[in-house]
């Protein structure tokens, strides 16, 4: 008896749930990471915060759409966009030629250089020779993985799922150095207690082929209307001074770059 009685409400619920997903109204589903402070991180209560998140909300407002933030592990970000789990990626993703083979990008919304971080006075320099046989950590599927494998062919490149794990292993001494975005390094590690005794090693990485031309929002190749609308929104935000408000909330320098 009970099974049949259950069936109808069950089916109705499933139907309602699925229709709720498909008809989410006029919303923009944004893929974000949530493990990359100060650009995006997750509070203890589960809310997402950060520069990327604020930027996403501002852009949605200007497109007159409701923002649906979808959390996604970094190394599955582009595949998830292509699989339509969300419509755009706002997650500090650098615009590179390699990624352009898979997705389209808006104009950049910020551009900060990549730098190495190591212990203060580590006893080696930032050249390929200095990093020979050293353990260099990078987050998987980032521009930094690309640069590290290219610039330090004799180093042992160690791959992590999140940047936070890279910091963890650098601070415990399992890594000799790590390569990442300099601003994220400054705000997300060097200024914290865990980052005491660590500093940048060498200057900004000069590798446009891997590092690209700044961070943009990624969209699927066919969504040119969305891409152009997002690009316009970024331009407006920059032009009318909203950018400065967002920027100054998190950073002491203008991260838009040259």
């Amino acid at each position: 008896m009970p099974l049949k009685k259950l069936l109808l409400p069950l089916l109705t619920t499933i139907f309602m749930l699925s229709s709720a997903v498909t008809y989410a109204g006029d919303s923009l589903r944004v893929g974000v990471e949530g493990a990359y402070p100060p650009f995006s991180w997750k509070e203890a209560d589960g809310t997402l915060k950060g520069f990327d998140i604020d930027f996403a909300h501002e852009v949605c407002k200007r497109l007159n759409k409701e923002c649906v933030l979808v959390e996604q592990e970094w190394d599955g970000m582009i595949p998830a966009l292509l699989a339509r789990k969300f419509d755009t990626i706002i997650a500090s993703m650098s615009i590179t030629e390699e990624r352009k083979k898979k997705v389209d990008f808006t104009v950049k919304y910020y551009n900060t250089p990549a730098m190495l971080v190591a212990k203060k006075n580590p006893g080696f320099d930032d050249t390929a020779d200095g990093l020979k046989y050293k353990r260099v950590g990078v987050q998987r599927a980032t521009t930094h993985q690309c640069s590290a494998e290219k610039l330090y062919p004799d180093a042992e490149i160690v791959l992590y799922a999140t940047q936070e794990e890279v910091w963890q292993d650098l601070s415990t001494g399992r890594l000799d150095a790590q390569l990442s975005d300099s601003l994220q390094a400054l705000e997300g590690f060097l200024k914290l207690d865990a980052g005491k005794g660590f500093d940048f090693l060498g200057g900004a990485i000069d590798d446009p082929q891997c590092q690209g031309i700044g961070a943009g929002f990624a969209v699927r190749k066919k969504d040119t209307t969305l891409r152009d609308a997002l690009s316009k929104a970024i331009g407006d935000i920059r032009a009318d001074g909203t950018y400065k408000t967002l920027n100054d909330k998190y950073f002491e320098i203008d991260v838009y770059g040259s």
């Binding site: 190394d75 599955g76 582009i78 595949p79 292509l82 699989a83 390699e98 990624r99 083979k101 898979k102 998987r140 599927a141 980032t142 993985q145 690309c146 494998e149 160690v158 791959l159 992590y160 799922a161 292993d169």
Partner: peptide
């Protein structure tokens, strides 16, 4: 998951390097 390049580690490396899904 702890940075060792085992079979799956290499698979994830390949996916990460070329932004592949599967």
């Amino acid at each position: 998951t702890i940075t060792i390049q085992d079979i799956l580690g290499v698979g994830r490396w390949l996916n990460g390097r070329y932004y592949l899904a599967y």
